[in-house]
Design a protein around this nucleic acid. Structure first.
Length: 445
RNA sequence: GUGGCUGUAGUUCAGUUGGUUAGAACGUCGGAUUGUGAUUCCGAAGGUCGUGGGUUCGAAUCCCAUCAGCCACCCCA
């Protein structure tokens, strides 16, 4: 007897049991529905890309996290680490036949070989949506609306979309003569919420080489408070004279006005000059979404506007704007908040195999219910009824249909509500219409 | 990639200064005279103590390595 191979999974990679997969799929379905309601179309791309595609615009950091290897043909390849780079390549290759503006969503796994932590894995799913080929602020506004609709559809009430505009930051940097160091300044600023003002100020001085007065001005900008209009008013004098900065201000106020006009509660979108986003390809609007009850987990949906998505792949000028929902991070947040239902069965109705000689009649009833859109699980073995009901209870079924000799004789079926324990009987004639009505009644409650 | 903490049945844990066949709860499976679950009662299965070395007469218990999990940094979803 050879030794058994130890079953195990790689660090940062996970199996999903039904109890985890059911809410996961529900979340994906919800995102898909919201994206489609705005006219975003689905696309997919290969998990594996030529290495040069992935490293084309990457920083040292993404290079380090990239899963790379030589394939069987000796080609240098890598697993995609986000969905934006594949989109850029995709757009460069196909934009001629797609036309602009092009709106797509892309829900797929990505891989990063970084250290793991709660809510951070090496294989995780992103749910991206982007509009490319237009510079209109309408697309930026729509991005915020999608994020709002998305979280509302998920059933989260307490969330805040923090919005900013890179031009505001760049405008200030222009005025301060710090344009050269913009990347390190933004990276430092990005830590404001998490690390606090002191840390940021220090990093600005050391890493970005800002003078005391420059640090002071940046921090002044980053610590503004008040409602959106107040912040905008405070920003104006700080940026006056900078064309870039003023344009950023205008864009921010257009977004703020538009979503108010649509009827989104004003506290949902907050102008927050501390939001910078470490990624340096953003050029305009940037946003991060936080759960009010769980800010520590970080942004669960982030995005922004970029000027030229595919510049390393094509001469075509492709501006775009879009965001990405961090599905796994959101899921672990929902789990922590106890928002998720605990079911491990996707079908609500359980049909015990009671009378061993009546298999076909059970199957027929199940088929009738499914035709009415009701999911039914038929137990495969005619075990004792008590056992079967125990099984149904543990799996979280809502309804059990009990049919034995007595019911068959009467042309009826017992409809049992598993949460209350009560039951009623209904006729199985007329394609089980009465049974279906009873079930719907229970499921509605 | 750097630093810290942890690793005993499916799960949550207990296991006394290293000393005989490693325990509990929950879960799983079976049963309590043959048509009704989640609350009762009885019983069973399940662990080479993450893995591999080392110290020792003897290691779950000490040391090293490795793998995995958690936390911080970094970065990000």
């Amino acid at each position: 007897m050879p030794d058994k191979i130890q079953p195990r999974t790689l660090k940062g990679f996970r199996d999903y049991l039904p109890a985890a997969m059911i809410p996961r799929e529900w979340l994906v379905d919800t995102a898909r529905r919201v994206y489609r309601s705005y006219g975003f179309s689905p696309i997919d791309t290969p998990a594996l890309e030529y290495l040069e595609i992935l490293t084309g615009k990457g920083s040292d950091e993404t290079d380090k996290q990239l899963y790379r290897f030589a394939d069987h043909g000796g080609r240098d390849v890598g697993l995609r680490f986000d969905l934006t780079v594949p989109l850029a390549r995709f757009a460069a290759q196909h934009i001629q036949e797609l036309g602009t503006p092009f709106k797509r969503y892309h829900i797929a796994n990505v891989w990063r070989g970084e250290n793991t932590q709660r809510g951070r894995y090496r294989e995780f799913m992103q749910c991206d949506f982007d509009t490319i080929g237009t510079e209109s602020i309408s697309a930026d506004i729509e991005m915020v609306l999608v994020v709002h609709d998305l979280f509302s559809a998920i059933g989260i009430e307490q969330f805040t979309i923090h919005g900013n505009n890179r031009r505001v930051l760049n405008g200030l940097l222009e005025k301060l003569g710090l344009v050269e160091q913009s990347t390190s300044v933004l990276r430092a600023l990005d830590k404001l919420a998490k690390a606090g003002a002191e840390v940021v100020a220090q990093e600005l001085a050391t890493t970005a080489g800002a003078s005391d007065s420059q640090v002071r001005d940046i921090m002044k900008l980053a610590s503004l408070s008040g409602d959106n209009n107040q912040i905008l008013a405070q920003l104006e004098p700080l940026l006056s004279g900078s064309e870039t900065g003023e344009r950023g201000l205008t864009e921010l106020s257009e977004i703020s006005n538009a979503i108010a006009a649509v009827g989104v509660p004003s506290e949902r979108f907050r102008i927050d000059v501390g939001i910078a986003r470490g990624l340096d390809y953003y050029t305009g609007t940037v946003l991060e979404t936080f759960l009010d009850d769980l800010p520590g987990i970080g942004s669960v949906c982030s995005g922004g506007r970029y000027d030229n998505l595919a510049e390393v792949y094509t001469k075509e000028h492709l501006p775009g704007v879009g965001a990405s929902l961090g599905l796994d991070r959101l899921l672990s947040a929902l789990e922590e908040l106890g928002t998720l239902e605990k079911t491990s069965t996707p079908a609500p109705v359980f049909l015990p195999f009671f009378d061993a000689d009546r298999r076909n009649e059970y199957l027929r009833l199940a088929a009738q219910l499914r035709a009415a859109g009701i999911g039914v699980e038929f137990f495969p073995e005619p075990k004792k009824l008590g056992k079967q009901l125990q099984f149904a209870d543990r799996r979280g079924f809502r309804v059990a249909l009990i049919m034995g000799a007595d019911e068959f004789a009467a042309g009826q079926c017992q409809v049992k509500d598993l949460s209350s324990g009560g039951s009623t009987t209904a006729s199985t004639s007329d394609d089980a219409a009465a049974v279906i009505a009873e079930i719907l009644q229970i499921l509605k409650a």
